[in-house]
Design a binder for these strands. Structure first.
Lengths: 342, 342
DNA sequence: CTGTTAGCGCTTTCAC
DNA sequence: GTGAAAGCGCTAACAG
């Protein structure tokens, strides 16, 4: 039974005061290098672990995070917000609050403006970002201001964001490809791809991964040119109808983004749902129903609850200077079929 | 900007002392019903949230949990232990420690004995349990003693355990069935099932779910009698060899438990790996390799890291009297194929 | 039944 | 550069 050490013990061991140990612990300036060494030695020698609760209590100040999310009716994004709501009391007990800011994330100027607004006003931010130079600059400004920043769902790898919360979209596309290929059986035919826009980083990456697998492992399947439905139901439905009419031998369909209801409508009404292996993204009310009634065969999904919690946990860990449990914060690519619907 | 309320504020509002508020907060006896009401009113009126860090700090006492796990070389169980190790500093910062106790979980008397040993010595325990009357009784004794108990991986639903950390094994079996069925294409043939033992609750449930789907959705596939390889490689390999020799038309294979290396060896050496849709459980070094080289088509998996962390978090939340984030603690049934290998 | 009080281990002024 | 001291909000004795 090892009585846990405290800062006071370390102070005694190093022959300095509490305050000095605290300074060293947080790499604060104003300590002679020699003293720093003595203190650090004492800490490692006795495997000192600061008591999280104590430091949390002592800082007293509440923490403020912001989530910058797309405005509009995207059900996946709404699920993330709902999940944030579920964490309310967890957050309250830790004296941290999050504000959700919705904005048109497709307009770089608007998005960048919203981010600039946050400078100096928050301890951290999670951003569903468009990968664009002015957005990148705004993120860097936020980081510069001392705030912790994580990108959410869609990354801006060239920015100085501290962390990305989301899936590997290339791998997600590959997974979709493997499923469509396998589900299409040994048959020969064409595969349709419907995306929101190839200008969106996540969509482009998914298409890339999907195409890779098709070209490499399913040579008997011919992939059609990507149709862009802008994540809208009507537009997607219209395009899908055209595709189905133009090609009688479509046996596989990959819906890369949203607009799933429209795509499914066109497919169902064509009467060919049973012949087409249909894989899409995310578990929402719409895809859930489609999986259950067999129109959709699988959904590639990233768990919105996990993403919401991960973003909050990572921001908090960054703010506290605690380590991040990388395995815990890794967002997995879920394959959801009728039988493992969550 | 709402300055967070403290117990002291509530005390003032209710016209009582700090200590009384604390008693009410924790439903401790020795407060007049009328006073209780006044205090509770004040708390709800101002949406009071106790500061987690403060209470954690004040209790000072470290917490001790035990994990009771199967001895032996089961790689999945070992992964759980590794993941516990990764949490070491997270736990240290919260002043909690876990001891891993390994034991022969297949012998009810031995397992029950180990559990009885824990009575009075731990604040909580996670148990990979056999569903047997004496184990159930031991779990109930532990709960009686005031410890928090969660079952891990395999449940004992009739016991008084506080929580089960693991997947719905019937749904897992159904998922395996859907995959084998889909991957077998439209072909006609036989499906083999290799299990550890049908006496294990999780195995029995998986087989049940698998059979359900086969009978309901894939009538052209005939399921063979379950072979029991006791989760051992050699035994499983031997049985698998016999099955393959006896039935030339096996086109699907479900490996319910461990012993995967043996099963795969028999399948590979028969030269029929390409013709057989092979689905098993868990992502381990063995199954990872089999997925990558195409012998295995999919693994149904429960994330050992998630289970380890969930068990610790749930025990901690129970011990602290905090609510459990149910969505977060739900263990999902992962479908892992080559392209979404974690 | 209720109140007073002394910490828990760290952070943060403010002195020196 | 360094140290002393006053809390942060809650819990747990102990007194009444």
């Amino acid at each position: 039974m090892d009585a846990p050490l405290t800062l006071r013990d370390i102070a005694r061991q190093a022959g300095v005061s509490l305050a000095t140990v605290d300074r060293v612990l947080h790499n604060r300036p104003g300590v002679r290098p020699d003293t720093v060494r003595r203190v650090k030695d004492a800490m490692t020698r006795s495997a000192f672990q600061p008591h999280a609760a104590a430091s949390e209590l002592a800082r007293a100040r509440a923490r403020r995070f912001a989530f910058v999310m797309p405005s509009g009716a995207n059900p996946f994004m709404q699920q993330i917000q709902v999940q944030l709501g579920e964490m309310a009391s967890w957050m309250a007990a830790r004296r941290l609050s999050v504000d959700v800011v919705t904005t048109d994330v497709f307009d770089p100027a608007v998005l960048a403006g919203k981010l600039e607004d946050l400078v100096g006003r928050v301890d951290g931010a999670a951003v569903v970002a468009l990968d664009h130079p002015s957005v990148r600059a705004a993120i860097n400004d936020l980081v510069e201001s001392g705030a912790k920043v994580v990108t959410l769902v869609s990354d801006v790898p060239s920015s100085r964001r501290h962390h990305y919360v989301g899936i590997d979209n290339i791998a997600a596309g590959r997974t979709a490809g493997a499923l469509v290929g396998r589900f299409a059986g040994g048959r020969t035919g064409r595969i349709a791809i419907m995306a929101g826009s190839q200008a969106l980083r996540d969509h482009a990456e998914r298409i890339f991964g999907f195409s890779q697998v098709m070209a490499g492992e399913f040579r008997q399947l011919e992939v059609l040119a990507v149709a862009e439905g802008h994540d809208e139901d009507d537009r997607s439905e219209h395009l899908m109808r055209q595709l189905l009419a133009a090609h009688r031998d479509i046996i596989g369909l990959y819906n890369v983004g949203a607009g799933t209801a429209g795509v499914a409508k066109a497919l169902t009404e064509s009467g060919r749902a049973g012949d087409v292996a249909f894989v899409g993204h995310d578990v929402t009310a719409v895809t859930r129903k489609l999986l259950l009634n067999g129109v959709m065969d699988a959904a590639i999904s990233q768990n919105p609850g996990h993403e919401a919690r991960s973003a909050v946990r990572v921001l908090l860990a960054l703010a506290r200077g605690e380590p991040i449990l990388s395995e815990q914060e890794m967002i997995r690519i879920d394959i959801v079929m009728r039988d493992n619907l969550p």
